[in-house]
Design a protein around this nucleic acid. Structure first.
Lengths: 375, 375
DNA sequence: CCTACAAGG
DNA sequence: CCTTATAGG
């Protein structure tokens, strides 16, 4: 958890200077980046895409370092002055005594409601470029965690460019890549060969970006998806909401009619306020936290699916699976939950655990894992 | 000096694999890159742009490492078999007892023909991106060598993007940048403020790439140039030869009519066979060693100018100022002399030395320096 | 191989 | 900030 003052201080140290270097609003922000005036003045929340900063209105000059230990000035101070520098706290009014913890590694004692231990471990990771990731991770994840299946998003690599170094002797691979080089793309590592593997949604206009792989196993369909980002300025929000989300949910419903479904991946949405650090400033501004995207996810769940993590840990906080590379967001734990395991309602009985493996580096996302027990 | 076998071995170790990774002629070259068959079979010279390799025809399988100590097999062997693996030696028949050395650092005893010591040191360096260079060099060159003037080529940086970190308290700067971002561009560090500075050749079609700066000093015009590369496939050779070279020589002649000229920079030509490692395989194939470019340089000299280095060191060998970044060419000393100080005939009397400072790293070119004595 | 750019996130 | 692509060398 990060205090407002500290957040403010750090973000200016790194982020603003970076932005200034890019030539945007240079003069204003550079001034702010070195010193600022503060005294009982409200902080202003500013939305910078996946990262939000609180800018304190200039008043009294202080070095940023001094901001951190500023006492919270309880009481009302002068009007709303004291109230605003609170960080975006509230988060849909969680009870203060709720259990906000969640698992970041495998709990060896996890079980289904009727006491069965896991029989299968399925992982999902947006690797942000499989070539860069493989240089950083060096198969550490597969060797340490040994999931039965690992789903990969954002391979950013055409299938015929995939280097041998990403292959692993214990796993069979399936790839789906975008027509555009270096863009999107999904992949599958699986110990057991699936009964069948298909690519895309079966609708041409959604299927040239390598975003979906569907693998049929004995007991379930596994679907991994890299859902289209609504883009800077939300330029692709309409496509994402009105076309993709509809077609994708439809795809899952059709599968679910045949066999239970386990769907995972980077869904590019934080469902509720609890699912991102700064809900207020990002709401309807940043891709991934618009009403439309959130509703799209609600609609998906309403079609008979369960957000496995939130089902098990309704009050878990700071359960991010993504931190922007910008402005040191991961070090400051300013993140989003964008990666999910969504399962058919009837698989709740077989669910052992759903975890977020925040300790694994190598991407701007971390891996997540689902533990299931099949008889 | 590198034996043929060694050259062959190394280039395959690094270069081919790189090429293969890029997806060009993969199967053929990867085979060759691991093993090869050799026995009395002639090496074949292959032109790969700024780098030439000798490929030994497959015959007997050997590991590349074994190739190095292969005895030269003097005598004729079988026909031209023994003759070919000699490296491109001959080089316009230098006498074997000629002094092939040249200065790579300042000789404190250097003088004009009539015994005067230098009064000015002028340097020139193609830095291949001034931002990357400044991170690597960190002003070491200016602080150590302290030239009166340093001319820079390939800044690859618009003037308003030039960071403060490239500035030096002892020098005034002048910049000329291309309209195209990140392309070409020249610059000047000078202790003494010139009388006047102009940019380009005064002909619109040649002047939108920031290739020429002309600075007038008391005793001479200083011109620095980054001459257009004829390009892969020699796509720009016609422009370079018929238009640029003509206009540039004309520019120098006009200046020379007023005041002696010192011109320096990356002229993107190796004048004679002695000026590159592999003349045979590059002749009329690679940009920088076509008959046209070489003739252009000859024409320039014929207009009343002197290649200061070659004038002082007619037999100097391996006097490269450029080594391709590819295939470890610098470590193997496979290079070209592309950087020159060209001076007005009448400045020969004031010439102390012209050196190639091969020890300075930070670019694919090294700096060169001219030492002059003005009364 | 290396330095620039741009797009995408 | 970071990973891709591409141009230019």
């Amino acid at each position: 958890m990060v205090a407002t003052g500290e957040l403010c201080c750090h973000s200016d140290k790194s982020g603003f200077l970076f932005q200034a270097a890019k030539g945007k609003g240079k003069s204003d922000e550079e001034t702010v980046s070195k010193k600022a005036k503060v005294e009982d003045e409200p902080a202003e929340e500013v939305n910078r895409g996946y990262f939000t900063v609180n800018i304190i209105k200039p008043h009294r000059e202080v070095e940023w370092q001094i901001l951190k230990p500023k006492k919270p000035k309880k009481g009302k101070g002068k009007g709303k002055a004291a109230a605003k520098p609170k960080k975006e706290a509230s988060v849909e009014s969680l009870p203060d005594d709720a259990d906000t913890s969640f698992p970041t590694e495998v709990n060896p004692d996890c079980k289904t409601p009727d006491g069965r231990k896991p029989t299968i471990k399925i992982a999902s990771w947006n690797v942000n470029g499989i070539r860069a990731w493989s240089e950083k991770d060096k198969m550490k994840y597969l060797n340490e965690v040994k999931p039965d299946i690992l789903c990969i998003q954002e391979t950013k690599c055409k299938e015929n460019e995939i280097p041998d170094s990403v292959k692993h002797k214990d796993y069979k691979n399936y790839w789906s890549s975008a027509e555009q080089a270096g863009y999107a793309g999904t992949g599958l590592y699986t110990k057991q060969k699936p009964i069948n593997v298909t690519y895309g949604l079966g609708i041409k206009k959604h299927d040239d970006e390598g975003r979906v792989i569907t693998a049929e196993y004995d007991k379930f369909f596994l679907v991994t998806a890299y859902v289209p980002n609504a883009g800077k300025g939300l330029v692709r929000l309409n496509y994402r909401h009105k076309e993709w989300d509809v077609a994708f949910t439809d795809h899952l419903k059709k599968l679910d009619a045949k066999k239970p479904v386990i769907m995972c991946g980077d869904l590019n949405v934080a469902h509720k306020e609890i699912d991102l650090k700064n809900p207020k400033s990002n709401k309807n501004k940043t891709a991934g936290f618009t009403d439309q995207e959130r509703q799209g996810f609600t609609d998906l769940l309403d079609a008979g699916f369960v957000d496995s993590f939130r089902f098990l840990y309704p009050n878990a906080r700071e359960c991010w699976s993504f931190w922007s590379y910008m402005m040191n967001a991961r070090a400051k734990n300013i993140g989003w939950r964008l990666d999910y395991f969504v399962i058919s309602e009837r698989l709740k009985a077989d669910l052992c655990d759903s975890i977020i493996q925040q300790s694994y580096m190598g991407s701007d996302h971390c891996p997540i894992m689902l533990l299931m027990s099949f008889k």
